[in-house]
């Protein structure tokens, strides 16, 4: 691990000042950042410890939603009674991710900012446009079983590894931040992560020194909440494909559908055209096939990950069948 200067921020203002003065990186749970620093994939000159900032609360918002402090751990968020009752898709997504030990350390803000698990991003001797812009992408013609099939570019085919963010995207979450100049802003989660394009090293729309302070969920949406994760082993593995679904059926027709996908793209993926094709329709296998066609019409495999196209199709159809099962009976 390369040397770095360490400082602990006592409050938000100090966190912003330290990050600006030292061009430092924020560290909270550290489970991903320290792993990458050991491998020297990440080599920050300074770390600003924000883990003790008072951002550990989960509280109701005025409009009936929920504000989740950036330092709330994944374990506490999954176990929160309000989340379990009103946003079960989020509890399920969190519980499907990582291990008990990691969930006790990983934070809400950090989870959103975790880096890809692309093998070549981790392997410092390999070309990687995300780690070393301009060096090339070893995954394009390499081992790419875990890689993206939607929204890729000729520079990068990495996926975003989070389960939590997929559920939050289905829930229309937004991210509240503190800017380096002391101001604050709110970024819709759908506009938070970026596709790789020509700059895969830029993964979010945060500015340098901008700190996530909370994630806000709108009032809980009606319908069945499902998080289905398909992976290589039964526990403690990243998603090959995951689907977060919140689907409501009224009078035999789909009244609302929110669908977000993990494992398919450089960011949690949501496609409104798929949802619109379902709304107002009677649930049926043919309808779900049509939804899958829409989701995957631009999908492209790169060899080893070709299987994700049929897997994504089957997983979506299975989730929609489960979500509408009772209404169809």
């Amino acid at each position: 691990m390369r040397e770095f200067a360490y400082s602990r921020a006592g409050d938000l203002e100090e966190a912003g000042r330290l990050a600006e003065e030292q061009a430092g990186r924020f560290i909270a749970g550290g489970t991903n950042l320290l792993d990458l620093m050991k491998l020297e994939v990440e080599t920050p000159k300074a770390l600003v410890d924000v883990s003790r900032l008072p951002l550990g609360e989960i509280s109701p918002t005025e409009d009936g939603g929920l504000r989740i402090g950036a330092m709330v751990t994944n374990a506490d968020l999954a176990a929160d009674q309000t989340v379990r009752r009103d946003y079960p898709v989020l509890s399920r997504a969190l519980l499907a991710g990582a291990s008990g030990q990691l969930r006790n350390k990983a934070t809400t803000g950090g989870n959103l900012l975790q880096r890809t698990r692309c093998y070549y991003f981790y392997e410092t001797s390999a070309p990687c446009n995300k780690r070393n812009p301009g060096s090339g992408c070893a995954a394009l013609d390499g081992f790419n079983r875990i890689h993206a099939i939607l929204g890729t570019s000729d520079q990068c085919i990495a996926t975003h590894p989070s389960d939590m963010a997929v559920a939050m995207l289905a829930l229309d979450a937004s991210v509240e931040t503190r800017l380096p100049d002391g101001g604050s802003r709110t970024i819709a989660l759908k506009n938070f992560h970026r596709l790789p394009g020509q700059t895969p090293e830029v993964e979010s729309n945060l500015q340098p020194g901008e700190l996530i302070t909370s994630v806000v969920l709108p009032p809980p949406p009606k319908g069945r909440h499902i998080y289905r994760k398909v992976r290589d082993r039964a526990s403690y593995a990243f998603a090959l494909v995951s689907v977060a679904a919140i689907v409501a059926v009224e009078n035999g027709k789909i009244a609302s559908a929110r669908l977000a996908f993990g494992g398919l793209a450089h960011k949690p993926w949501r496609d409104r055209a798929v949802e619109e094709a379902l709304i107002g329709q009677e649930p049926s296998e043919a309808l779900f096939e049509e939804a899958a066609d829409l989701l995957l019409k631009e999908a492209a495999g790169h060899g080893h990950n070709d299987f994700k196209i049929p897997l994504g199709r089957r997983t979506l159809i299975a989730v929609l069948s489960e979500a509408t099962k009772e209404a169809a009976q």
Partner: peptide
């Protein structure tokens, strides 16, 4: 942080001691 051999309790919670800095 993949094997759990380093698990300790911090304030009663289990964590991977390899993935955190002592100074924190």
């Amino acid at each position: 942080g993949q094997c759990g051999a380093c698990t300790v309790l911090v304030n009663g919670r289990r964590i991977n001691s390899c993935l955190t800095l002592a100074i924190m």
